[in-house]
Amino acid sequence: MKKIISILLGFILVSCSSAELVNNWKNPDIDSFAPAKILIIGMTSNDEARQKFEEKLKQKYQSRGVEAVTSYELFDESLMSYRRSEDDLIMLEDSLIKDGFDSVLLTKVAGVEDRTAFFNKFDKDTNYGFKYDYYNNQEIYFNRNYYDEYKVYHVETSLYCICKTEERTLIWKGYIDIIDPNSINETVKDYINLVLFVLEEQNLIQKNE
């Protein structure tokens, strides 16, 4: 019952945000996971959004007693200046393990979709006829702004284990849509709140008391 109430409360918290959970997957072989030192990576060409996202999420992990480091502070600009080979990334992962990291949280924009919609009240009254319907929708002909055009960003966040004594594996992946973002700060806040809520429910991060 407590879990059901928690899920309902979480739904209320995120239902008015710009971030919407589409689906998520948890490794069935892992009941819970408590990272000790995590690397946070936001893959985007928007430096401002990347820095704000990584820093905010770092603060959230630190408030839960987890040592967190952002890619922004760990890597120099050369890491993003050219394509890395698989061997390069194996060496990078090995160096992270030597430095005490046991997990990586990677977020990336997987796609962008343009959508068009208009908001028209559905009237259940069967007594109104054709003229009522036509009269109330004539703006389709004359108002170019009748339809609402907006973008949806399809974003993926993955939590990986890079533990020394365990197989390096995917622990969790979440698919989240960011709908018509207007503010970097608000979008980052909404997205992080949603990710943390889901991770808490999956026992993959300690809840903040």
Rank of each mutant, 00 (worst) to 15 (best):
I5T: 09
I5E: 10
S6W: 03
L8T: 12
G10T: 03
G10R: 04
I12A: 11
V14F: 09
S17G: 12
S18L: 00
S18Q: 05
N24L: 06
N27W: 02
N27D: 05
N27E: 02
D29A: 13
D29C: 01
I30Y: 02
S32R: 09
S32Q: 04
A36K: 15
G42H: 03
T44N: 04
S45Q: 13
R50V: 06
F53G: 10
K58D: 09
Q59H: 11
G65S: 06
V66I: 15
E67W: 03
S71R: 03
E73W: 00
L74Q: 03
F75E: 06
D76E: 13
M80L: 14
S81Q: 15
R84V: 08
S85Y: 07
L89V: 11
I90W: 06
I90S: 13
L92W: 09
E93P: 02
S95L: 10
S95A: 12
K98C: 06
F101W: 12
S103N: 10
S103F: 05
V109L: 13
A110Y: 10
A110C: 03
D114K: 15
D114P: 07
R115V: 11
R115N: 13
A117D: 15
N120K: 11
K124Q: 07
K124R: 11
D125Q: 07
D133Q: 11
Y134F: 15
Y135Q: 14
Q138N: 11
E139F: 14
R144W: 08
Y146N: 08
Y147L: 09
D148Y: 13
V152M: 09
H154R: 15
H154D: 14
V155N: 08
T157K: 04
I162F: 02
C163K: 14
E167H: 07
E167I: 11
R168S: 12
R168H: 13
T169S: 09
T169C: 03
L170V: 06
L170T: 06
W172K: 13
G174W: 04
G174P: 04
I178K: 07
I179C: 01
D180V: 05
D180M: 06
I184L: 05
N185F: 05
T187S: 09
V188Y: 00
K189A: 08
Y191W: 03
L194H: 01
V198R: 05
V198C: 02
E200G: 07
E201G: 02
N203R: 04
E209S: 06
